[in-house]
Design a protein around this nucleic acid. Structure first.
Length: 267
DNA sequence: AGAATTACCTGAGCGC
DNA sequence: TGCGCTCAGGTAATTC
C-alpha cells in the first residue's frame, strides 16, 4: 500500500510528468468513493495549468491555478500519466486530459482513496489543517515526540500512526521504526523516556528516507505500478525470526492493526 | 481531551 | 471449480 515513501515517489514522478501541462477535459467516472469526488472538477479544471505537485503527509497537492486538486491514494490507489489515453478500465475513477493529448488517471480498486478540490490554500483545508509535522523536517524530533506523548497513555505505535501527531506514518513504517528504535509497540506513549523519543524520531526518519532512496532506483514498468522492493525487518513476518537476535517474532493487534515485534530486542 | 470503535471497499488466499 | 470466509488497512466520523 502506498505509504509516505511511495507517495513522495509518486509526487516526484508526476512532478516531472504533468507540471506545465494545460488541462483540457476532466472526467469523473466514479463519483462515489468513501468521500465523493467533487463533480465541479469537470468545470473548474479545464483551461488551468498544473503548476506544481506537492505533498502533505500522504496527500498529493496539485496546484491548478484556480485552486488545488488534493488526492489521497488510500490503500490501493495509484496515479498514472499516460502519453496516449487507453480506454478506462475497472476502477479507473478519474481522468484528467491534457492539451497535449496525455492523461492523468486515478485508479483505486478498494475505493479508500480521496479526491478533494479546494479553491483556497491546501494547508487550510479541514482535512489537512490538523495534520502534525512532516517527519522528514527538523520540526519533528525527539523533544517534540516527548512533549506530545506526555498526556497520552495510548500505545506508542498508535501515537505515531496518528496523523495529528506526525504526518504520514502508516502501519508498515510504524512497525519498522519501533523495531529499529528497540521499543515495544504496546508501550504506553507516556512511558517513553526522552532518549527513547529521540531514538524513535530518528528511526522514523531513517526508515522513511531509506525507503524513498531504495524506491527511487526502482523503475515502474509502463503498464504496471509496483512499490519499492524493500525487505522489512518485522512487517509481514509475524511467524518469522528476528533479523537481529534470531528469536521468534511476536504478532499482536493494536487498534485492529497487525503489529509485529521482537519481544527480546524491543523493550 | 483522549481513547476506542466503526464504516468504507474489493481482491487475494484459504479450506472444503 | 467455486463457494464462503477472513484478512489487508488509512482515515473520517462517531461514541464514550
Amino acid at each position: 500500500m502506498p505509504e509516505l515513501p511511495e507517495v513522495e515517489l509518486t509526487r516526484r514522478r508526476l512532478e516531472r510528468e504533468v507540471v506545465g501541462k494545460r488541462i483540457e477535459v476532466v472526467k469523473v467516472r466514479t463519483p462515489k468513493l468513501r468521500l465523493p469526488i467533487p463533480g465541479e472538477l469537470e468545470t473548474v479544471l479545464p483551461g488551468r495549468t498544473m503548476r506544481s505537485v506537492g505533498r502533505r503527509g500522504k496527500y498529493l497537492l496539485f496546484d491548478c491555478e484556480a485552486g488545488s486538486l488534493i488526492i489521497h491514494l488510500g490503500m490501493t490507489g495509484f496515479l498514472r500519466h499516460l502519453p496516449d489515453p487507453l480506454l478506462p478500465g475497472k476502477h479507473d475513477h478519474l481522468d484528467v486530459f491534457f492539451a497535449d493529448g496525455s492523461l492523468l488517471r486515478f485508479h483505486d480498486p478498494r475505493k479508500f482513496g480521496t479526491v478533494i478540490w479546494t479553491s483556497g490554500s491546501p494547508a487550510e483545508h479541514p482535512l489537512l489543517s490538523g495534520i502534525g509535522p512532516e517527519p522528514l523536517t527538523s520540526v519533528f524530533d525527539g523533544s517534540y515526540l516527548f512533549r506530545v506523548s506526555r498526556s497520552r497513555r495510548v500505545a506508542v505505535k498508535l501515537l505515531i500512526m496518528n496523523a495529528a501527531m506526525v504526518a504520514g506514518v502508516g502501519n508498515i513504517y510504524a512497525n519498522e521504526a519501533l523495531f529499529r528504535a528497540a521499543i515495544r509497540p504496546d508501550r504506553p506513549a507516556s512511558s517513553l523516556t526522552p532518549a527513547e523519543c529521540e531514538r524513535l524520531a530518528l528511526s522514523i526518519r531513517e526508515v522513511l528516507l531509506e525507503s524513498i532512496e531504495q524506491g527511487s532506483t526502482y523503475r515502474v514498468a509502463e503498464d504496471t505500478v509496483a512499490y519499492h522492493p524493500l525487505e522489512f525487518d518485522v512487517y509481514g513476518r509475524g511467524k518469522g525470526a528476528c533479523t537481529r537476535c534470531g528469536g521468534a517474532l511476536e504478532e499482536i493487534r493494536l487498534g485492529n492493526r497487525s503489529t509485529v515485534f521482537c519481544p527480546s530486542c524491543q523493550h
